[in-house]
């Protein structure tokens, strides 16, 4: 058969595409559950880590989430509440605008909302390597146990992270000032929502 004939070109393209797409769909079918699970799991994981609860693997995390947390709607706001060492911790799942797209995450505070227990990111689309670094441990670590007087401020230390837990401030990410500003705004908005919901409780 002539290699350059129309029939051959069409047949060849069709068969090759078919084979490749078939293989891809097999691989996809095999992994889709895992990917889907990873996605669902990232929310559970975020809620657990924001409240400072350790877990070993997915199964353990789901178990702890189902056993320890109570989902409760208080004044129109959904909270995940967990009792830890006699103190109630309130977790709120937030979503707000970053520089490029939505940033979703979980924030945990005490009942009077004057101290952050921790934060965790579920999904973000900031520039990889710059704004995307809000997912890095040192950045999230700054929020852990931070005392809140009024709202959270952004400071520029020139180092990596602000260790002072009483100044109600976090260090911006070097090279990603805008994302840091947007992120702190999202956190402050979330704190406001939590305060107004829990005040009348």
């Amino acid at each position: 058969m002539n290699k350059e004939s129309k029939l051959y070109v069409v047949l060849f393209t069709f068969i090759i595409s078919f084979i490749f797409i078939f293989v891809l769909s097999l691989i996809n079918a095999y992994t889709i559950e895992k990917i889907e699970l990873n996605r669902e799991f990232s929310k559970v994981k975020a809620i657990l880590s924001s409240a400072g609860i350790q877990f070993f693997d997915k199964k353990d995390a789901l178990e702890k989430f189902n056993n320890l947390f109570i989902k409760k709607n208080i004044n129109g706001v959904d909270f995940y509440i967990v009792d830890r060492e006699g103190k109630e911790i309130f977790v709120y799942v937030f979503s707000g605008n970053g520089l490029w797209g939505l940033i979703e995450g979980a924030i945990a505070t005490n009942k009077t909302v004057d101290q952050i227990i921790g934060i965790e990111i579920i999904a973000q689309n900031e520039t990889p390597g710059l704004g995307g670094r809000i997912e890095e441990e040192w950045f999230k670590e700054q929020f852990k146990n931070e005392k809140l007087s009024g709202s959270l401020k952004l400071i520029y230390t020139g180092k990596q992270g602000d260790d002072d837990k009483t100044n109600s401030a976090v260090d911006a990410i070097t090279g990603a000032t805008l994302t840091s500003k947007f992120f702190v705004k999202i956190i402050n908005d979330s704190i406001e929502i939590m305060r107004s919901a829990l005040r009348s409780e």
């Binding site: 979503s95 605008n97 970053g98 490029w100 939505l102 520039t127």
Partner: peptide
């Protein structure tokens, strides 16, 4: 969910502050 971003801001940001070539290579 669609992010609530002003299209004009996006336009400005993609031309200048986060130029596809100069900041995303």
């Amino acid at each position: 969910m669609i992010p609530d971003l002003n299209p004009l801001l996006l336009f400005f940001a993609s031309v200048f502050t986060s130029n596809i070539l100069l900041s995303n290579f």
